[in-house]
Computed example of a mutant assay.
Amino acid sequence: MERALGTVVRGLRSPIIKEGDNMENIVVETVLNAAKSDGYTFMDRDIISMTESIVARAQGNYATLDAIATDIGHKFNGETVGVIFPILSRNRFSNILKGIARGVGKVVLLLSYPSDEVGNHLVSLDELDEAGINPWSDVLTEADFRKHFGFKKHHFTGVDYIEYYKSLIEAEGANCEVIFSNDAKIIVDYTKNVLACDIHSRSRTKRLVKAAGAEKVFGLDDVLSESMNGSGFNTQYGLLGSNKATEDSIKLFPDNGQPLVEAIQKRLKEATGKVIEVMIYGDGAFKDPVGQIWELADPVVSPAYTIGLEGTPNEMKLKYLADNNFSHLSGAELKTAITDHIVNKQSDLIGQMEAQGTTPRRLTDLIGSLSDLTSGSGDKGTPIIHIQGYFDNFSN
């Protein structure tokens, strides 16, 4: 019988992961038990992915706000610090901000507008137009912002992030001044101590403020890049990718996940005889059409993955082939012609018209997005994902 299924994605239910749990055993047992329970088999190039959250939790990669404050205090000596371009998020940044404020005397909070880098809006572009404000050149004080826009609540959370972030800072005993600009260099007019809190543009931000005269410049990736008094840490990303755990702690991005994915791949090969790819994933990469939010608050989609997931897709657009190369064919002849064409396609289709419209993204970013959408961020209870047929095409 002709194969009727292409890519199949399964969310696998696992135990609730706690600190100290053996992730290798849990993932392998969950994957094998799910296949046995539902009666499906494994194939070469299957993919097993797991959320970064369960890996970090098993690692016990947590830190208190005091640990953040200690590191910030060491870096800035308790002086005034410019906290620039943070994202607007209770989950992602509120505890970080509390820890920063706990370690300094004053925070100059520089917010980008109309939105942060992941799409959380303070105001709309239409409102800027109506007020005659140019976000690329105009610098606003908090009073300026309130005069033009008043108190603005986030579309989904109902939070006025200006008031919220200011209250968090002041509750820690630090003074707070809020300004609005998309020019990082503006911060040196207020302080020469800068903490770049943006995620994907952090290297450029650091470069710009240093060139403008900032003296002490760090990013979130530099904070808790090593342990503070026994705290968790992330050598590569520091505080980037962290989440609120409790009111006084955060869960960091998993550290050193490569040995784990390789060990799981080895165990699954021993158990199934198949080469199965394995990855850890965080935020996928997609945009909410209503809230305009990009799900890109982690520094990378996948911090660890097996070698078979390296690279980008090499795909043809079926509708292009049907409308152009083989527009004179139909039915079985069209199917045979397209199948043969795919089987004999070039190993690198970059620049070819037949590949136009295919997604030019890394495999780990695509698969991570698929996994993230499948597992969700709430109570589905499926932090492990089994993907089959992802690398197949119309000719298989």
Rank of each mutant, 00 (worst) to 15 (best):
217 V>R: 05
268 L>P: 08
276 I>K: 04
65 L>R: 08
302 S>M: 08
319 K>L: 08
230 G>L: 00
75 K>T: 04
108 V>E: 01
274 K>Y: 03
155 H>Q: 15
69 A>S: 12
366 L>E: 10
92 R>V: 13
164 Y>P: 01
125 L>Y: 15
356 Q>M: 14
172 E>F: 04
290 V>R: 12
131 A>V: 11
136 W>F: 13
36 K>Y: 11
185 K>G: 01
352 Q>Y: 13
370 L>D: 06
375 S>Y: 15
207 R>H: 12
243 N>A: 08
306 T>D: 05
259 P>E: 11
366 L>D: 03
20 G>I: 06
292 Q>S: 10
160 D>P: 07
246 T>H: 11
308 G>L: 01
65 L>P: 08
353 M>N: 14
57 R>M: 11
277 E>C: 04
296 L>Q: 12
62 Y>T: 04
150 G>K: 07
205 T>A: 13
133 I>N: 11
238 G>R: 05
276 I>G: 02
262 E>S: 13
129 D>F: 14
368 G>Y: 02
119 G>P: 09
372 D>P: 06
65 L>S: 02
215 E>C: 07
349 L>W: 05
263 A>F: 03
38 D>W: 11
225 S>R: 13
232 G>N: 05
83 V>E: 03
81 V>R: 05
384 I>A: 09
5 L>C: 06
253 F>I: 10
47 I>N: 10
28 V>L: 02
197 C>N: 05
181 S>V: 00
105 G>E: 08
252 L>T: 07
368 G>S: 07
335 K>T: 01
